[in-house]
Simulated scan of single mutants.
Amino acid sequence: MTDQELQLLVEEVSNQYFQIPFIHKASFNPRLRTTGGRYLLNSHNIEINRKYLDQLGLEELIGIIKHELCHYHLHINKRGYQHKDADFKNLLKSVGGPRFCSSLPRENNSSKPKKVLIYKCKSCNQVYLRRKKVDTKKYVCGKCRGKLVLEETRNN
Score class of each variant (00 low, 15 high):
residue 51 K to I: 00
residue 38 R to N: 02
residue 119 Y to D: 13
residue 22 F to D: 15
residue 64 I to L: 13
residue 127 V to D: 01
residue 50 R to I: 00
residue 94 S to H: 13
residue 120 K to A: 14
residue 116 V to K: 12
residue 131 R to W: 14
residue 121 C to W: 04
residue 67 H to W: 13
residue 142 G to E: 03
residue 29 N to I: 00
residue 79 R to F: 06
residue 76 I to C: 04
residue 86 A to F: 07
residue 98 P to Y: 11
residue 41 L to G: 02
residue 152 E to I: 11
residue 148 L to H: 06
residue 51 K to G: 00
residue 18 F to C: 07
residue 6 L to S: 13
residue 99 R to L: 15
residue 30 P to C: 01
residue 49 N to K: 04
residue 88 F to H: 03
residue 63 G to L: 01
residue 150 L to V: 08
residue 10 V to P: 11
residue 114 K to I: 14
residue 141 C to W: 01
residue 98 P to A: 15
residue 34 T to V: 08
residue 1 M to P: 14
residue 32 L to S: 00
residue 154 R to K: 14
residue 25 K to I: 04
residue 81 Y to R: 06
residue 100 F to G: 13
residue 90 N to S: 11
residue 120 K to S: 02
residue 77 N to M: 05
residue 88 F to R: 04
residue 86 A to C: 04
residue 115 K to C: 15
residue 17 Y to S: 15
residue 58 L to S: 06
residue 120 K to T: 14
residue 24 H to I: 05
residue 85 D to M: 06
residue 119 Y to A: 09
residue 119 Y to V: 12
residue 28 F to Y: 12
residue 15 N to S: 08
residue 81 Y to M: 02
residue 114 K to W: 03
residue 17 Y to D: 08
residue 90 N to P: 05
residue 84 K to H: 13
residue 131 R to D: 11
residue 42 N to W: 01
residue 55 Q to T: 04
residue 90 N to R: 13
residue 123 S to A: 15
residue 56 L to D: 04
residue 72 Y to C: 07
residue 121 C to P: 12
residue 39 Y to W: 11
residue 123 S to R: 10
residue 44 H to N: 04
residue 94 S to N: 13
residue 154 R to Q: 14
residue 14 S to W: 02
residue 11 E to T: 03
residue 35 T to G: 00
residue 67 H to I: 02
residue 141 C to P: 03
residue 116 V to F: 09
residue 28 F to Q: 01
residue 68 E to K: 15
residue 32 L to M: 12
residue 97 G to W: 00
residue 71 H to V: 03
residue 6 L to N: 05
residue 72 Y to N: 08
residue 132 K to F: 15
residue 1 M to C: 07
residue 132 K to A: 05
residue 80 G to C: 10
residue 4 Q to W: 10
residue 19 Q to A: 11
residue 116 V to M: 06
residue 125 N to G: 09
residue 92 L to M: 08
residue 31 R to M: 00
residue 44 H to R: 12
residue 133 K to I: 10
residue 113 P to F: 09
residue 82 Q to N: 07
residue 126 Q to C: 12
residue 118 I to A: 08
residue 26 A to T: 03
residue 133 K to P: 10
residue 53 L to D: 14
residue 103 S to A: 11
residue 113 P to Q: 04
residue 36 G to E: 00
residue 119 Y to N: 09
residue 20 I to A: 05
residue 94 S to P: 06
residue 79 R to W: 03
residue 101 C to P: 09
residue 12 E to Y: 13
